[in-house]
Simulated assay, not measured.
Amino acid sequence: MPPYDRAVPGAGVEAGVDAGGAVPPALVAPARRPAAAVAGLLRACHPPAVVAVTALITALAAASGRGPGGCVLVAAAVLTGQLSVGWCNDRVDAGRDAAAGRRDKPLANGAVGARTVALASVAALALCVPLSLASGAAAGAAHLVGVAAAWAYNLGLKRTVLSWLPYAVGFGLLPAFVALGCAGRPWPPVWAVAAGALLGVGAHVTNVLPDIDADLAAGVRGLPQRLGRRRARALAPVPLFAACAVLVFGPPGQAGAMGWAALAVTGALAVLTAVPAAAGSRSRLPFLAALVTAGTAVALLIAHGDSLVSRR
């Protein structure tokens, strides 16, 4: 399950508590109208990521042959898992966001309380367990391991050179969750898991590109931050292009016109973005190219959804 890649957890006030374990004054908001608190809670879950990942995996489940009921179960499991991860991320980073004056963050600006977000995160995680297992023990275990990886990222791995690992595990296990929940419980093909893992690593690097300088100033030392802005910008399209290549050549059958076209476009983007990135340009081209490449990889994965359960 993909984690969320923003401010890093720390100790004391940076973890959202002071030395005595209390929530800092900046996070204690006055009484809120219920509607405003709900709106703040929704903003704290990282809605774009929640919607995008839930829609992607639900579409993949439909493409793999899951019926309407099965797709609803997949959507509910992924949605609750994503909500738990998003709320966990904002709760862990609440102190740092408040100290940095992040008025766009609901916890930092007082739109919702820290206790509310923490309870919502735990409640979503509790719902995620039975909803995941409803697709079968093996499928549920695959999904829950991905969710656990995302929580581990939020709670500390994001500060280390292994910051990419939870993304690789979370994205790599999503095709497994879908395949193992289908009739016959087939193991997912290696190419699907590999493509998911590569897509996750690319998503991690791409996601932190806009904030690398701020992260370094705040002491965030994940893999992209250790590489530095220039090398991270050049690296971002590489795992995404590799995911596209795996999705073109991995599934059974010929690559086809769509596959070759996807490789041509994403390969050209990878080469073109490496030049300005290596030169230290501050162009947004590497970031935008990585987004296009990621979108192409997602489209290829969904297009080959029926191959997830193929026994060939």
Rank of each mutant, 00 (worst) to 15 (best):
G65R: 02
V201F: 01
L127V: 06
G250T: 04
A217R: 13
A277N: 08
D5F: 02
G101K: 08
P166I: 06
G219S: 08
T80S: 15
A243Y: 01
P130T: 01
A236F: 08
R43H: 13
V8A: 15
A100L: 12
P130E: 05
Y153A: 06
L235T: 07
A49R: 09
A289S: 05
A194T: 13
L56Q: 08
L288Y: 09
L125M: 13
L199Y: 05
Q225Y: 15
T206S: 13
A242Y: 03
V208G: 00
A197W: 04
T293W: 04
R96L: 12
A197Y: 08
P252A: 14
S132A: 15
V74A: 11
L180R: 09
L308A: 12
P252M: 08
A118R: 15
A37E: 13
A289M: 10
V238M: 09
L269H: 04
G200R: 00
C45P: 01
D90M: 02
Y4L: 14
A234D: 10
G253W: 03
A137Q: 10
A52R: 02
A111W: 00
G228K: 05
V112Y: 02
Y167Q: 02
G95A: 11
D5I: 06
A303L: 12
A262E: 04
D97Y: 02
V145R: 03
A61G: 15
L133V: 06
R284P: 09
T160M: 00
D215W: 04
S307P: 01
R311L: 10
A149Q: 05
N89A: 06
G20F: 04
R33E: 14
P9A: 11
V220S: 13
A114R: 00
A52P: 02
L155I: 08
Q254W: 10
D90F: 02
A11Q: 12
W187A: 06
G67I: 12
A294P: 06
L107V: 11
A63M: 12
G110M: 11
V129K: 01
T273R: 10
C128T: 14
D97W: 00
A194S: 07
V85K: 03
A179W: 05
S135I: 01
G70R: 05
A98H: 02
L300A: 03
V178P: 03
S84M: 12
A19L: 13
G170K: 07
P47W: 09
L291F: 11
T206K: 06
P106T: 06
A261M: 11
A192S: 04
A183Y: 03
T80R: 08
P224M: 02
V238F: 08
P3T: 08
P130G: 03
V50S: 11
P189G: 07
T58G: 06
L209A: 07
P210K: 08
A218I: 04
D306M: 13
G110E: 01
K158A: 08
W164K: 07
A31R: 15
L83C: 12
V129L: 04
V117Y: 01
V50Y: 02
M258Q: 14
